[in-house]
Design a protein around this nucleic acid. Sequence first.
DNA 1: CTCTTTATTGTTAATTTTTAATATAATATT
DNA 2: AATATTATATTAAAAATTAACAATAAAGAG
Lengths: 217, 217
Amino acid sequence: MKKKISLRVIKRISFYYEALLKLNLSDDLYISSIKLEEITGVSSNQIRQDFFYLGISIGKQKKGYQIKRLFNELKKVLPIDRRVDVIIIGAGRLGCCLSEYKLFEVRHINVVALFDVKEELISKAEERGSHCAPIHHIDKLDGFLSEHPNIKIALLTLPENSAQEMLNKLVKLGIKGIVNFAPKILKIPEYAEDVQIVNDCIGASLYKVIYQIYNKA
Amino acid sequence: MKKKISLRVIKRISFYYEALLKLNLSDDLYISSIKLEEITGVSSNQIRQDFFYLGISIGKQKKGYQIKRLFNELKKVLPIDRRVDVIIIGAGRLGCCLSEYKLFEVRHINVVALFDVKEELISKAEERGSHCAPIHHIDKLDGFLSEHPNIKIALLTLPENSAQEMLNKLVKLGIKGIVNFAPKILKIPEYAEDVQIVNDCIGASLYKVIYQIYNKA
DNA sequence: CTCTTTATTGTTAATTTTTAATATAATATT
DNA sequence: AATATTATATTAAAAATTAACAATAAAGAG
């Protein structure tokens, strides 16, 4: 009954959601599509089109959208108020960085644990704040996932040469969603078509800036 | 007279370019659009369409595109030979992570230096590999930029409470493009409208995966 | 308070981009 | 040499984005 929302729309909605999260503390009550464009980089036309498509019709002329209300509408689209447990494979700089990422908390994304092959990272775990997720050796992954069957998502922050192998392993262990941060496109094995992968590219926004600065006519 | 190439095409072309760079060492002479799809994640239809649009018509049936030749064709399209120098403000985990980011090398993005307020990070610089960019104290930023007037872009990996202040400073020092990684929306001062900013959101792709897993009909 | 101006939405229309389909040609195979 | 296969180049169809604009609520002037 629900209409299928394309992945592109989902991606943009998550940008809007993100922007609103960041604004939440501020006491501006309303935000216009133009303001939202400034923040998200998505054009105001696109934003209004998206809201129209999704049946979000809560804007007020000359003011914009009530932030809290818009936030709730977007929440309905991305059913993101459910707590989501994830693990991080790779406890290097990026992995640790993500495990402490403030926005994850706000979004109810809970990093349950990190895994790594390097023993020295594991021993270092104690040095980290007590609020941080524990770092385990990768050998314990199998058992860990058996004990935590609710974990369906893994973030991959490994070097590119080991990422594909680890993905295959994760799929075998029942992981259903993977965000790959390695600078390499990873593929889902053919026998596991229901598994979702997103190849994230951290630096990509830099290209936009470079292009705008050096190629602007 | 050159036709205007959209930012989207530019982005994809840079993916192809990057893929070819990785292949260059291999001795496969030809690559097909399907193989390129596997590497880049861009559909083979899209790839052929892009080449058609750009007038790149060098494919051989049943073999694909001669790698070296395709590489040269793409090079013509992308003004990617230019080296772009950038600095990173904030030498924490994310900053260091970005300074070693492999894709930056491939794309000729050169992290010249990192800056931080914390003395201990600066002293630690020697422990890092010699190939890494040096970490300086933030007080040296002013002088550094005077000595390197070609640096127009800064990546901001600071905590959110100090990010806006630093942005203002950077703008005053002549920086023209900023990528903000702090989980806070930053504003360009009104007197500096030519400055480009992108507020990057590291975790956003996770939403996509969550949506796909928990909303699959 | 009433009128005018203005900003911003919701919606439709035009344009652009992407995806799919197909005709064609080169290569490999039997 | 004939045939089947595979991959391109091109065209056509579908989808997504951008632009346009009428409607109208809010703000401001008098």
